[in-house]
Design a binder for these strands. Structure first.
Lengths: 152, 152
DNA sequence: ATATGTTTTGCATATTAATACAAGCAAAAC
DNA sequence: GTTTTGCTTGTATTAATATGCAAAACATAT
């Protein structure tokens, strides 16, 4: 359940101004994930999130865009966990995952903040990535399949 | 004294693994700057520093490289505060500042993490920036003079 | 020199975050 | 089937950080 939660956390901090770990706990609870502040402290450490000062002068948890390759590791773990198959047409990449895991993959891809990715959308076991160009979709598919096969 | 301290803080966190605000207070004390944790908390807020997880698994304060233009603001304030004059020869930019402020400007420039800047060195009221190329030095001088004149 | 407004700071404290420890679980090993 | 091992979590606690408030420091006008 941990990786789902991590993904949800990435999702939450992107869409809400989360000031404290308790705020985050609350939001997770609303999603049916019941954890304590202690666990969240550990999640935040693992995800390498940081507390930044938002423009409004308040603190806010955030996934630094480009944190030295760490999010890539995260993607690796989640992909290995969730991946089923992958294909693309034109600039759209479609990723099939285990049931319930599509959100996790999408949130992680989002957190990477890649400019070449226009956006993602996720259902339950399928997600789509809108890429800037067909070439990007192809490259991303390659990258993912290599990840799953354990090739660096 | 505040801007000097801010500069020193930037300097310290770059050169030491600062885990807590108390650690930072200690290092500042070694430099003859005597402040409490409370002040440092406020400094960290103003400088928009973040606590990141270092590769060694420990937390560490850091100035995110490229935090959405905020360090630029910081540079702006410090430049307005300290700037006297500026000139360059070849790829070396020389900045004259008010007495004692050269370190502040240098640390702030360092914190920007610009690739085009090879390095900086600061005395008391003069500092030098070694740029990757003459063009860079020229651009930087322009940027600084525009800053001082209040032109964006 | 004195008053007045602004900024910076420390103190004390409230709030927030990290962690030692033990318990619970599940998979692997025996 | 039992034991071992490794991982995740909550509890309780400690550690770290943020902030309200008053005092001090500074600047500026009178």
């Amino acid at each position: 359940m941990k990786y789902n939660r991590h993904a949800k956390i990435l999702d939450i901090i992107e869409n809400y101004e989360i000031e404290t770990q308790d705020d985050l706990a609350e939001k997770l609870r609303e999603s049916g994930m019941d954890v304590t502040q202690a666990t969240i402290s550990r999640d935040i450490k693992e995800l390498r999130l940081v507390k930044v000062l938002s423009s409004g002068g308040k603190y806010r948890y955030s996934a630094m865009n480009s944190d030295g390759g760490n999010m890539n590791d995260r993607l690796l773990v989640i992909i290995k966990e969730a991946y089923v198959s992958c294909d693309y047409a034109n600039n759209i990449l479609v990723i099939k995952t285990l049931p319930g895991m599509a959100q996790a993959v999408a949130a992680t891809l989002d957190a990477l903040g890649w400019n070449d990715i226009v956006g993602t959308i996720a259902g339950d076991d399928t997600m789509m990535v809108v890429c800037r160009a067909e070439k990007i979709a192809e490259d991303l598919m390659d990258k993912l399949t290599r990840m799953v096969r354990g090739v660096s």
